[in-house]
Design a binder for these strands. Structure first.
Lengths: 118, 118
DNA sequence: CCTATATATATCAGCGACCGGCATATACTG
DNA sequence: CAGTATATGCCGGTCGCTGATATATATAGG
């Protein structure tokens, strides 16, 4: 099992699947929206990542369908993926909070608030 | 210029330098503390990353000193590094908030089996 | 009719950050 | 004198991501 921290494209993929199942191309657009256009998921990243995440059991192929003569694969977040995403966001939230606290502390000329970490 | 999102070891490195300058080995311990022992920065990652970050202008060698007969290089966060860290934390905070919102939204209309807790 | 764009999936070579191991050196403790 | 802590550094290998390329259908514009 791989316990390495998720990279951002993977994190965004799981996030985009957190509320409802989506197909590959839809994920590209969804991630574009989530990140306010700052992240454009490449197809090389996307389809490789989808295969890998299915392999790891974090997502699954919900169904395959044909819309307007074009084939789609719809992916859904699996239970394991939900757990990983929840744990990852909680961990990241702590890191972000710590970074912001340190940046603020530095601006205040190293005056440390009570309870600051070593 | 590299505008790719920071990976976590790099993010933690900049975070650990955000309040005050530190030397390499001290950063390993600091990151261990920040992450509550969950991330153990490897020396292979550390010294390679430090060189790279100096090269990119995100950090700088503040000074070199000898303590107890052991040589140290003390690194400090550069202005560019401060900007990158601030931008990165803000971006990550938005992604984390979005992920948590979606996870909550899913729970709100999901059919939960009896006695099952997330 | 032809071309361009949007939709949609898939593969692959290459890059770069990270990992794990190894090497080197000093100081302290048992 | 061996082991642990401090302290820096190199290097081969792994693996996710990038950018390019390929394939195919539907729609809009010239």
């Amino acid at each position: 099992m791989n316990e390495r921290p998720l990279q951002e494209p993977t994190l965004l993929l799981l996030t985009a699947l957190a509320d409802e199942p989506r197909h590959g191309y839809g994920l590209i657009q969804e991630i574009d929206a989530i990140s306010q256009g700052r992240v454009r998921m490449r197809t090389g990243t996307l389809y490789g990542a989808l295969d890998r995440l299915v392999q790891q059991g974090l997502i699954r192929v919900e169904r395959e369908e044909v819309v307007d003569g074009r084939a789609r694969k719809v992916y859904a977040l699996a239970e394991a993926g939900r757990d990983v995403l929840a744990a990852e966001t909680e961990r990241l939230r702590a890191v972000v909070a710590e970074a912001e606290r340190r940046l603020a502390a530095r601006r205040a000329h190293a005056i440390r608030p009570k309870g600051a970490l070593a």
